[in-house]
């Protein structure tokens, strides 16, 4: 009488990563079809297949079925195993593409994860390893995932040849903490990392620990001053967008809020991005949790900030071993 839980059903190749993550976390199988079915080159791309491989190795008992044409996949999630994993990333995407979903999963693994990724470390599509190290990981620390959380950048590599190597170490937790982060504070310092030939990433930190980041990728023939100007201005734009959480990390923060204990978590965000909106919808499908979204200060007509509050599902890391 082993019934299978309800299957999540999605269409299209968009938002593949977070859908897979939600499926693995919620334990519900996911079927994604119409993956570029109208495209000249239909089906999964090499980096998507590589991502599926990576997820299969990070988990135990995951069954992935890909249709013959590659336009539909069915993923029956196993448990998140963690441990030591090495993965060669294809050169079509940077390691950030692969790290982002893994970061969402790793705190709930059976064993602490030590993931070595090889490939491109910085490109214009995905979060660079610098941003992940300086912004993503502190965002994870808000939820009590801190001891032993580390991203080691061993080698840098850029397109077209790659050759970079990073190691991601993540501890496991029993349950993530509930977030109550409604005060964005005021920017107290701005720091940055510039790695010649790769990129300039800037990070603004507020008095309450709110972070905003921006990055500009160096391109051949463009003087460094212009790159710097671009980065600085994008950072200003980010700061103006408001919120207590970096815009690229809205989904991460919202996911962790949903997975928190059965208490009300609150967070102040700027206007949600398109990814965030879709993520909220998918999250409702996977966990049945909706957010209450209210303007942060209704009296101020100029503020676009919103308070996202939700009631955590009380997600407990069931994969953890007790001994």
């Amino acid at each position: 009488m082993a019934q299978t839980p309800a299957v999540l059903h999605f269409s299209g190749h968009h938002y593949l990563r977070h859908r897979l993550v939600l499926s693995i976390l919620s334990g519900k199988p996911v079927r994604i079809d119409k993956i570029r079915s109208d495209d000249q080159n239909p089906g999964l791309r090499d980096y998507e297949v590589s991502l599926l491989r990576l997820l299969e190795r990070v988990t135990n008992g995951t069954v992935i079925e890909i249709s013959v044409t590659g336009t539909a996949i069915l993923l029956k999630p196993g448990i998140i195993a963690g441990g030591s994993v090495t993965h060669e990333c294809p050169l079509s995407r940077s390691v950030g593409y692969f790290l982002e979903p893994v970061i969402m999963l790793a705190p709930f693994a059976k064993k602490p994860l030590s993931l070595t990724l090889k490939g491109i470390t910085t490109d214009e599509h995905d979060l660079s390893v610098d941003i992940i190290r300086t912004v993503t990981l502190p965002h994870l620390q808000l939820f009590g995932v801190s001891d032993g959380l580390e991203l080691r950048i061993k080698k840098r590599g850029s397109a077209p040849l790659g050759g970079g190597e990073v190691q991601f170490l993540c501890p496991i937790v029993k349950q993530v903490k509930t977030l109550d982060f409604v005060d964005p504070g005021r920017i107290k310092r701005i720091r940055g990392i510039s790695s010649p030939g790769y990129a300039l990433s800037l990070l603004a930190e507020s008095t309450t620990g709110a972070m905003h980041s921006a990055e500009a990728i160096s391109k051949p023939g463009v003087p460094p001053e212009e790159i710097a100007l671009l980065a600085a201005r994008s950072l200003l734009a980010e700061i103006r967008r408001g919120g207590a959480v970096d815009r690229h990390h809205q989904s991460l923060v919202l996911l962790m809020m949903v997975l928190g204990s059965e208490d009300v978590g609150r967070c102040r965000l700027g206007e949600p991005t398109a990814r965030t909106i879709q993520f909220l919808r998918d999250m409702k499908q996977a966990f049945g949790t909706a957010f209450k979204i209210a303007p942060a200060d209704p009296s101020d007509p100029e503020s676009t900030d919103l308070i996202f509050s939700c009631y955590g599902v009380g997600y407990i890391n069931a994969n953890r071993t007790l001994s």
Binding site: G185, P298, D300, D305
Partner: peptide, 19 residues
Amino acid sequence: AEGVDENGEPYEDMEGEAG
């Protein structure tokens, strides 16, 4: 304008309601 007073103290709650 962003709901921060001089000390950087949060007062969204009260301010929100009163506001």
